[in-house]
Design a protein around this nucleic acid. Structure first.
Length: 652
RNA sequence: GGGAGCGUAGCUCAGUUGGAUAGAGCAUCUGCCUUCUAAGCAGAGGGUCGCAGGUUCGAGUCCUGCCGCUCCUACCA
């Protein structure tokens, strides 16, 4: 509602200014006044016009208000302060829009985009840092879908990298496990093979540190994985696919799903890089360095590092090496090939086969050789816009890939290449010590310590979720003894998901999260359960009243329902802003605003809940209005929570 | 050295493309459960928005310079 009316207002004002002053303002600022008494919209446009018109802002505002007609749905314009133009809505009409769920016209049938997130190295259990990635990514997917985009969700599988090689080294050289023993371990491990790998991976890192000569095992293994067609590569694939399955299961617990899993091994074996290399050379994006420290490498000029015209100071030592002097390609090169495929610029494609299936029967597809692909499989890639949810430490390589695409002349694609960058999740020193890790004196002085899969230092995603469910379960047990064990567990799980997803979303993405159990396990204050609880309270009213919330929304609203009732109206106004918040979140690629919206709405509702006792209201008309208010807030809260992937429990 | 980001209440953080009196949560203190469930509500205290200049009708927000912290910058991935 709010967004539609705001767009209508802006268009109206713009047309008026054009006609009255012959000024075409393309960016008319609209704010929400600090207090509801001032109206629903505030236009500081007079301040901006003051200079060009050489008049006092207040005078301009007076002129505009005196002459401008009211757009549909608006009740009044008035001048306030030093020259603000405040606009008041026809509250009854606007409320009908909220209750009727008027669609955001701009959100009709937008194009197809691709979101890549998660992309955890398949060699160990997912930890809290990965959770932030997946929750941000999944929320971005939900935001885009809510705004009318078609979205393909990809989870990139680096199954031939150093990290997988390391854990393979662990199995072959340290644990001395045969292929059969590893298979038995995958089948056993009580469904937590990734936990076994977590510990083994940490041991391998220690083994390397103990004797640098052990690093030769990594190099040999990495080579075997890249070449393929040997037993080590087979073992690696078994391990990485088993860990990948665990990752999918972990994320499924949080209602996070994927469409396609491209594997790095296929990018290698299908020669994506060879094709990309040709195209990059043809376009002159890569050049062969003849001298300096990068002699013998194929390199690329860094973004913003254009060569000076006059000063010929030898080789560009700052250039990014894409192909090493021994002829092997680094991972950025493979990434460039992969991203050319994403945009459909490579002229090659994967084959597709089913890998995993969700409860509703929807499959997750994985890449393969096209000759092994399933008939009738969908095709991925070749989209117009992409979002890569990758942490801030990878900004540099992400820029390099984007730059390569730009330099090849694909300006439109480069412009729609979004690196959704976010900061890491770290542990507070106190949390690290509680978990039993040794923390140096120096680290104890820091506000946070980076988690490290390599060192086995961190909180595993499944462990955190288990802990949250356990904490929520004891609360539910205490409050709902009448429910079955199964029902209580179901509700505790929903609360845990709400708490976790909200926690990961409430910080803006560029802020480092210093993880602490006390905060993460909190169900009070600005948390997911607080928002869920507001919905439960609203639902309780309808259950006890024996009224369907959908029917409550259909009740006719009296013309004077909101006259002199700012508190009630501000609740409707807040509820009508969901579409606007979603658009803002997409435009700024910042989902944190969603949590703010949900929290404020829940907070206002709790206030309303406390102030008005609906079931005992005797005036039938007033009772209907209060019920409609509860229904509209409930509806918008559930919708907002759904975009955040937070379920609405039946009771709490 | 170069690049990116951060610095706002005791703590953790919000603060839209510059706008009306800088906001939440936690913690502390004071009240409120025979009521639609207190995972809640009401209230109190707590701020030189890192420092110094500048731009303008107006700066937490933009520019410049400092101070402090973090990450990135390897023929690792």
């Amino acid at each position: 509602m709010y967004l539609s009316l705001q767009n209508r207002l802006v268009a109206h004002v713009r047309a008026f200014l054009k006609q009255k002053y012959e000024i075409d303002l393309t960016n008319i600022v609209v704010e929400q006044p600090p207090k509801i008494e001032f109206g629903e919209f505030a236009l500081p446009v007079s301040f901006e016009l003051a200079r060009t018109l050489r008049k006092a802002p207040r005078k301009i505002a007076d002129e505009i208000v005196a002459e401008m007609t009211l757009p549909e749905g608006f009740a009044k314009f008035e001048v306030a302060g030093a020259g603000y133009i405040n606009a008041r809505l026809d509250r009854t009409a606007a409320a009908a829009m909220v209750a009727g769920g008027v669609k955001n016209e701009a959100a009709e049938a937008r194009g197809k985009v691709l979101v890549e997130h998660t992309s955890i190295n398949p060699n160990k259990a997912a930890h809290i840092g990965h959770l932030r990635n997946s929750i941000l990514g999944d929320t971005l997917v939900r935001l885009l879908r809510a705004a009318g985009y078609k979205v393909d969700v990809q989870n990139y599988i680096d199954n031939t990298g150093v990290q997988v090689a390391d854990v393979v080294v662990g199995f072959e050289r340290m644990a001395k496990k045969s292929k059969e023993e590893i298979e038995a371990l995958i089948a056993g491990s009580e469904g937590r093979f990734d936990f076994y790998c977590w510990d083994l991976y940490a041991r391998v890192s220690q083994w390397y540190e103990a004797d640098k000569a052990n690093l030769q095992a990594r190099r040999d293994t990495l080579h075997l994985l890249e070449v393929g067609g040997n037993e080590t590569a087979e073992i690696a694939q078994k391990i990485s696919m088993a860990v990948l399955r665990r990752h999918l299961e972990t994320m499924q617990r949080l209602d996070i799903e994927y469409d396609f899993l491209p594997q790095e091994s296929d990018i290698l074996h299908l020669h994506f890089w060879a094709r990309a290399f040709e195209l990059l050379k043809e376009a002159g994006v890569l050049y062969f360095e003849e001298e300096g420290k990068n002699k013998g490498c194929w390199v690329m000029t860094r973004p913003g590092n254009v060569k000076d015209e006059g000063a010929e100071a030898g080789p560009d030592e700052d250039a990014k090496v894409i192909v090493r002097s021994n002829g092997t390609v680094g991972y950025v090169g493979k990434d460039i090939a992969y991203h050319m495929w994403k945009f459909g610029l490579l002229g090659l494609d994967f084959g597709y086969r089913k890998f995993y299936e969700y409860a509703d029967g929807r499959p997750v597809w994985i890449s393969c050789d096209p000759k092994d692909g399933e008939a009738g499989a969908p095709h991925f890639g070749g989209v117009g816009a992409i979002y890569n949810v990758i942490d801030a430490r990878q900004s540099d390589p992400q820029e390099t890939v984007k730059q390569a695409i730009l330099l090849m002349g694909h300006e439109a694609e480069a412009a729609r290449y979004t690196h959704f960058s976010y900061e890491m999740v770290a542990l507070t020193p106190r949390c690290a010590m509680e978990l039993g890790y040794a923390v140096s004196e120096e680290d104890q002085q820091r506000s946070y310590i980076e988690v490290s899969g390599r060192k086995g230092f961190g909180v595993k995603a499944d462990d955190l979720l288990d802990k949250l469910i356990e904490a929520a379960k004891s609360e539910v047990d205490a409050r709902h003894a009448e429910l079955s064990e199964e029902e209580r567990r179901e509700i505790a799980t929903q609360i845990a998901i709400g708490a976790l997803r909200y926690f990961m979303l409430k910080f803006t993405k560029q802020s480092v999260i210093a993880f602490d159990f006390r905060e993460a396990l909190s169900f009070e204050g600005e948390t997911g359960p607080y928002v869920q609880y507001a919905v439960v309270r609203a639902s309780n009213i309808f259950r006890k009243a024996g009224v369907d919330p959908e029917d409550a929304l259909k009740a006719a609203i009296a013309a004077d329902a909101f006259a002199g009732n700012d508190d009630l109206w501000s609740l409707w106004l807040a509820a009508g802003q969901t579409a606007k918040v979603i658009e803002q979140c997409i435009a700024s690629t910042e989902p944190a605003a969603l949590t703010k919206h949900a929290f404020q709405l829940a907070q206002q509702f709790n206030n309303f809940y406390h102030k008005h006792h609906i079931l005992t209201e005797e005036d039938a008309g007033r009772k209907a209005l209060l019920l409609a208010t509860a229904a509209v807030v409930r509806k918008e809260l559930i919708a907002t929570m759904a975009v955040m992937g937070i379920p609405a429990p039946a009771v709490m």
